[in-house]
C-alpha cells in the first residue's frame, strides 16, 4: 500500500527539509535525523527517506536498511484510532494472535499499516501490563480486556457510528445556521 501524503504532511516535510540543513552532513547523524523526523511527522514516507539520503549523500537503500531495523521508526502514518494488540505471554496463551488477525481482516490492513482514510492503524505490542485481562487490545487510550473475535467488529463499528453521529450533528448545526 502506498501512502498518500496529506497537505499537512507536505508542509511538515518542507519545514523538515530546512531543518536538515542545520544538521552536520556526517553519516553518524543518520539515526538522530531519522528520530527528529519520526518525532515531527510520526512516520517516514519514501519522500523523506530520499530526502535524507540525498542530504547525507548516501544511497537510499542504506537509509532504508537502518530505518527498518529499528522498531521506533514507522513507515505508515498513525491512525486517528491506533489499535494496539497485545501479544505478550499471557495474551499469546489466550490467543491474542486471533484477535490481531480479526482486526487485520476487518480493516483490510496488516499489522504495522494504516487504513487509507487514516482512521485506524494496527500495531502489535508486547506486554501492556494487565495480563489478568488477557487477551488485551488498546484502542486510543482505552484498554479493552477479555477480547473476543466478536468484540472486534463492535469496537470498529462504535468508532464509525460515533463518526457518523458527529457528522450528522455538524450538518444539523450548519443547516440551523442557514
Amino acid at each position: 500500500m502506498d501512502v498518500i501524503l496529506t497537505s499537512e504532511d507536505k508542509v511538515i516535510i518542507e519545514k523538515l527539509g530546512s531543518r536538515l540543513t542545520q544538521c552536520e552532513k556526517v553519516k553518524t547523524n543518520l539515526i538522530p535525523i531519522l528520530q527528529m523526523i519520526q518525532e515531527e511527522l510520526k512516520y517516514l514516507p519514501p519522500e523523506v527517506i530520499k530526502m535524507v539520503a540525498k542530504y547525507l549523500e548516501i544511497p537510499g537503500s542504506e537509509v532504508y536498511g537502518v530505518a527498518t531495523f529499528y522498531n521506533q521508526f514507522k513507515f505508515n502514518p498513525p491512525g486517528k484510532n491506533p489499535i494496539k494488540v497485545c501479544l505478550g505471554t499471557a495474551c499469546h496463551v489466550r490467543a491474542g494472535d486471533i484477535i490481531l488477525e480479526n482486526f487485520e481482516r476487518k480493516l483490510g490492513i496488516s499489522e504495522g499499516q494504516t487504513t487509507e482514510d487514516r482512521e485506524f492503524s494496527i500495531e502489535r505490542v508486547a506486554c501492556v501490563g494487565c495480563c489478568a485481562l488477557a487477551p488485551v487490545a488498546i484502542m486510543g487510550d482505552t484498554v479493552h480486556g477479555h477480547m473476543a473475535p466478536s468484540k472486534v467488529e463492535g469496537l470498529i463499528l462504535r468508532v464509525q457510528v460515533e463518526h457518523e453521529k458527529a457528522e450528522r450533528e455538524r450538518q444539523k448545526i450548519e443547516s440551523d445556521r442557514q
Partner: peptide
C-alpha cells in the same frame, strides 16, 4: 543493496534513489 527489516522478515533490498 542492503539488508532491510529484521529477524525472519529480513530481506535484501535496494531502496529507490532520489
Amino acid at each position: 543493496l542492503t539488508f532491510a527489516k529484521r529477524g525472519f522478515d529480513t530481506v535484501i533490498s535496494g531502496y529507490i534513489e532520489p
